[in-house]
Each structure stands twice: as structure tokens, then as C-alpha cells.
Simulated scan of single mutants.
Amino acid sequence: MRLALERRAVLSLGANLGDRLATIDAAVRALDAIDGIRVLERSSAWESPSWHPDGEGLSPDYVNVVLIVGTTLEPLDLLDAVNAVEDALGRVRAERWGSRTIDIDIVTIGGVERAEDRLVLPHPRAHERQFVLQPWLELEPEASLPGHGPIAELAEYADGDVWRLA
């Protein structure tokens, strides 16, 4: 029997409906309870304005955290697992940039680079999102995003406001 190797993955969680922090806490617990996923580190909570193609501020602000996890799951299996957690916590996929109880994005898994219909790694917009970069920078200041470079440098140039939640 071959043992699966554990890889480090970066997950970005955000919520802007309901009790945002409680929902994120529940998502972290649910992820950590899944066979093949271990939560290794969790950032502080950060807040950012909602964004919509028609303009900012149409919805409540988001609370965001980044997790570093160890996983033995293959990328699509990890995607299925995070989608199941979202569904269990009431995620509705009605519109692309709509408000949500929880959103869990896979930012990167090890150094895997892939582009498929269901999953693009690393996440195609992570390099331009302060609400991903700042919490990740808090956890791993020397980290690099495959194909884009050091997150510390990316954070200097990315657009958007983000602030640590008190």
C-alpha cells in the first residue's frame, strides 16, 4: 500500500453574510475534520469591501482569513471537499460576484500549476487580491505564488483595501 504524500496548500476563506466570523470558524473546523486535510496555520481575520462589477459597496464587507493546510488529497478532491463545506454552511451560487455565507478558494497546492474547467492553480486572481495577499503574508512572509513571484512584492502593488479586523 502506497502512502499519499502530504502537500501544503493555501486556502482563502471569505464571508459577508450572517455572522461572518462564526461561519469562518465553522468552515475551519469542518475542513480540519476532513480526512486528508490538516489545518496547520490560520491568519488573523481581515476585512475588505465587497466588490461587484457594477461598483463597490453594494453588499456588506467581507471577513477574510487564509489557512495553510497539509493535504493528501488530489487537487480536484480538495476542490470537492471545500465545495462540500461551502454547501453545508449555506453557500448559494446564484451570481458570480454575489454576497455569500462562505467562499473557500484554493490559492495554491504545493507548486502545482494546472488549468482545467473546474480548477485553475494557482488561483488566477490571487496575485491581485489584497484580501488574499495580506493574510497570507502574515503567515508566510517569504512565500511565493507560482508564476507570479514573492507575495510580499505582489502585496505592494495589488489594488484594494484590506484591514485587520479588531
Score class of each variant (00 low, 15 high):
Ala26Leu: 06
Tyr62Cys: 01
Ile34Arg: 15
Leu137Ile: 08
Ala143Cys: 02
Glu41Ser: 10
Ala33Asn: 06
Leu145Pro: 10
Trp163Arg: 14
Val120Ser: 10
Ala152His: 13
Gly147Tyr: 10
Ala94Lys: 13
Glu6Phe: 06
Thr71Gly: 01
Pro124Arg: 09
Gln134Ser: 01
Arg96His: 13
Glu113Phe: 06
Gly90Thr: 07
Phe131Asn: 01
Val120Leu: 04
Leu137Phe: 11
Val65Gln: 11
Asn64Val: 02
Leu79Val: 13
Gln134Cys: 07
Ala22Met: 06
Ile34Pro: 04
Leu40Tyr: 06
Ala81Ile: 14
Leu119Glu: 06
Leu67Ile: 08
Ala33Glu: 11
Gly36Glu: 06
Leu31Ser: 05
Gln130Val: 08
Gln130Cys: 08
Ala4Cys: 06
His148Asn: 13
Tyr157Asp: 08
Asp87Trp: 07
Gln134Leu: 15
Leu78Gly: 11
Arg114Ala: 11
Trp97His: 02
Gly98Glu: 06
Gly160Asn: 13
Gly149Arg: 03
His52Thr: 14
Thr72Pro: 01
Glu6Gly: 00
Ala152Tyr: 09
Tyr157Leu: 06
Leu165Gly: 00
Arg7Phe: 11
Tyr62Asp: 05
Leu137His: 06
Asn83Tyr: 12
Thr101Tyr: 09
Val107Cys: 10
Asp32Met: 13
Ala88Thr: 03
Glu153Ser: 10
Glu140Ala: 15
Ser99Pro: 15
Val69Cys: 15
Pro124Lys: 11
Glu74Tyr: 13
Ala84Glu: 10
Ala27Cys: 10
Trp46Met: 02
Pro75Ser: 10
Arg42Gly: 04
Asn83Asp: 05
Leu31Val: 04
Thr108Val: 12
Ile68Cys: 12
Val85Asn: 10
Val63Gly: 01
Glu116Phe: 03
Val162Glu: 04
Ala155Asn: 08
Leu119Gly: 06
Ala81Gln: 05
Ser12Trp: 09
Val10Leu: 14
Leu67Trp: 00
Pro49Gln: 12
Asp32Glu: 03
Asp117Ala: 15
Thr71Ile: 09
Ala27Trp: 03
Ala15Met: 11
Ala27Leu: 02
Leu121Trp: 10
His127Val: 03
Met1Ile: 08
Arg38Cys: 05
Gly18Pro: 02
Arg118Asp: 09
Pro150Ser: 12
Ser44Gln: 06
Glu47Ser: 11
Asn64Phe: 07
Arg20Ile: 04
Asp19Gly: 01
Ala88Ile: 01
Trp97Gly: 02
Arg91Leu: 05
Val107Glu: 11
Glu47Trp: 10
Arg7His: 13
Thr101Pro: 14
Gln134Ala: 07
Ala26Ile: 11
Arg164Thr: 03
Gly18Thr: 01
Ile24Ser: 00
Arg93Lys: 12
Ile34Ala: 00
Val63Gln: 04
Leu133Gly: 05
Asp35Val: 07
Val66Arg: 09
Ser48Met: 09
Ser12Val: 05
Leu17Gln: 14
Ser99His: 07
Thr101Glu: 15
Glu156Ser: 04
Leu21Val: 13
Ala26Met: 02
Asp77Cys: 04
Asp35Cys: 01
Gln130Tyr: 12
Val10Tyr: 08
Val65Ile: 13
Arg118His: 04
Leu76Arg: 14
Leu3Tyr: 12
Ala81Lys: 06
Leu76Asp: 14
Val92Phe: 01
